[in-house]
């Protein structure tokens, strides 16, 4: 574990008990997050990225269960806390900007009341002028006019609601912010504004951020470190520049290549096939059935994350045999 890690996840396993058997949505994931670090966690639907985000706050709900591993927040093991201590930690030390933040506001309460709730729960009642000043500061910090405090959610645009949720999430200056697709329903210009606001907020607070998403472009614009999840497993993690210029895992490479650019028209190539069902995982590497470089060893054992360059790890049987990823041509659908 890194000495300055604010968040450290060790062999975390989250399982859903389904009618067709247990599904491991998060399967032995480990990573650490340093102070002020921005980690982008990318994956397709069903890759376990949202399950991962909720597990970091121990917000996993039935039929999901955290069945193994630890989440260390500073020196505290979140898994070992009582419900009462856990409530104290949430928001104060680790806060979440949930997916669809637009619908996480209470439609019948003014914004002021919703921010006050968060502060009351942790710090008790504050004198009225102090509370009002605090709310104004929080709203200004996310680029909103303080008059927004007296509005109802339906009076705000999507971007403004998203900023409001950010103001609530950062009301107690948490050390870690988990943002789960915070801009998924927003237009491209508003998306950029909201991400820039999150960036300024993050650097102002010195907080670490886990940004969960499926858009490699968005993650690349924001993150220092990028982690790629596939079928519940972390398959590659490394510094953003290396992840984009020289990814080591074939899945990461194909994921980047599937993004259309605006420089030249080219053949658009997706990744043929579908991710496996979590209740029916293939033997060995989960990506092997879709991987153009798969060999017999890929189905024989699950590759472990191993260091491939400084601060860069990949879970692929190609390494340490090869110095870099050879060129790929996507194979036909299996």
């Amino acid at each position: 574990m890194m000495a300055d890690a604010v968040l450290s996840v060790e062999d975390l396993i989250v399982q859903y008990d389904t009618a067709s058997g247990p599904a491991r949505a998060v399967d032995r994931v480990s990573f650490t997050l340093g102070q002020g670090e921005r980690l982008g966690l990318i994956g397709e639907s069903g890759s376990g990225k949202t399950t991962m985000g909720t597990a970091l706050m121990r917000l996993t709900r039935a039929p999901g269960r955290i069945v193994g591993g630890r989440v260390m927040l500073g020196g505290t093991d979140i898994m070992a806390l009582s419900q009462r201590d856990l409530r104290a930690v949430r928001l104060r030390d680790i806060a979440m900007i949930p997916q669809g933040a637009m619908s996480s506001l209470n439609p019948v309460l003014r914004i002021r009341v919703q921010i006050e709730d968060a502060i009351h729960a942790h710090e008790g009642r504050l004198p009225k002028p102090e509370m009002a000043a605090r709310i104004a500061t929080l709203l200004t910090r996310v680029g909103l006019d303080p008059v927004v405090a007296d509005r109802f959610p339906h009076e705000l645009s999507g971007g403004m609601k998203q900023r409001t949720v950010m103001a609530i999430a950062t009301a107690l200056s948490p050390k870690v912010i988990v943002a789960d697709e915070p801009t998924s329903a927003l237009d491209v210009v508003v998306q950029r504004q909201v991400m820039q606001t999150l960036g300024r907020l993050q650097s102002g607070l010195g907080a670490a951020v886990v940004l969960i998403g499926h858009d490699m472009g968005l993650i690349a614009q924001f993150a220092d470190t990028v982690g790629v999840m596939y079928a519940g497993r972390l398959v590659e993690i490394g510094p953003v520049a290396q992840m984009i210029a020289a990814p080591r895992h074939p899945y990461t490479r194909l994921l980047i290549d599937s993004l259309p650019g605006i420089d030249a028209k080219r053949r658009l190539t997706g990744i043929p096939g579908l991710p496996p069902r979590l209740t029916d995982m293939p033997p060995g590497c989960a990506f092997a059935p879709r991987c153009p470089l798969a060999t017999a060893s890929c189905t024989a054992s699950i590759p472990a994350l191993q260091t491939v360059a400084s601060g860069h790890r990949a879970a692929c049987h190609l390494y340490p045999g090869l110095p870099a990823l050879p060129p790929l041509t996507a194979k036909a659908a299996p």
């Binding site: 491209v188 998306q191 950029r192 690349a220 953003v240 520049a241 984009i244 650019g261 605006i262």
Partner: peptide, 15 residues
């Protein structure tokens, strides 16, 4: 404005 707001996976073209 629309074009400059596209999140490209290209670090030389950061917002």
């Amino acid at each position: 404005l629309l074009v400059s707001s596209i999140p490209l996976p290209d670090l030389s073209r950061r917002w």
